[in-house]
């Protein structure tokens, strides 16, 4: 498969996964409405079951999304054949961890790995490393893309694994800053470049 085609199918896959997460949310709305027959229902065991159920429907798609992002993120570091092997190993470890432990453990593993990988990508982008490849041209757009992806994995890791941490909200705000800055830099690279007087 050519690199361009590979990227195209990756985008299709990501779009489908996002669409499926949307479908899970729609199911949640419908089921919540069906269950909410009296105002006290959120204090019952049924509500906890509903939350656990929804999380369990979401997590597999989150894993798939991370794998697709994973295929997207390290493509900047590895060649395509290495990348596919790398992703297959990650998916394998995630599945093993899910079988022998819980899906949260598997998800936690993949999130930590992705945070490390994306942090490396960001550092290499800042240092303008030649060994990193991007679809997008220009320093600002690349910074935006790196920050956006790092922000997303940080936010997900924070929700899945660090909800009880005293640094939960602090990490969350870092994630928000990364995502917002990443979005702005990705969407408006030329304008930002002209504002800070660098050529994009």
């Amino acid at each position: 498969m050519k690199f361009k085609n590979y990227d195209y199918y990756l985008i299709i896959l990501t779009t489908l996964i996002l669409f499926m997460i949307g479908a899970v949310s729609l199911y949640g709305i419908t089921y919540y409405n069906y269950l909410a027959v009296d105002s006290g229902w959120t204090k019952t065991a049924q509500y906890s079951q509903y939350i656990d159920g929804m999380d369990s429907y979401l997590y597999p798609f989150l894993v798939l999304l991370l794998i697709s992002l994973g295929l997207c993120i390290p493509k900047r570091l590895f060649e395509q054949d290495v990348l596919l092997k790398f992703s297959a190993i990650i998916l394998g470890i995630t599945v093993i961890l899910t079988i022998f432990s819980t899906i949260e453990t598997g998800l936690g593993f993949i999130l930590i790995l992705m945070t490390v990988v994306q942090s490396v990508v960001l550092i290499m982008t800042i240092r303008k490393s030649k060994s990193i490849r991007f679809e997008k041209e220009g320093f600002i757009a690349r910074m935006g893309s790196s920050l956006l992806h790092l922000g997303l994995v940080v936010i997900m890791l924070n929700f899945v694994g660090l909800r009880d941490s005293p640094y939960h909200l602090l990490i969350f705000w870092f994630g928000v800053i990364f995502i917002t800055l990443g979005n702005v830099l990705s969407f408006y690279p030329e304008k930002i470049a002209s504002l800070i007087f660098i050529s994009e």
Binding site: L18, F19, I21, G22, S25, I29, Y32
Partner: peptide
């Protein structure tokens, strides 16, 4: 968490 409005917002954002 998983309140209908939150589910709806997640759905809208992923779309």
């Amino acid at each position: 968490w998983w309140d209908p409005k939150i589910s709806g917002s997640i759905m809208m954002w992923v779309l």
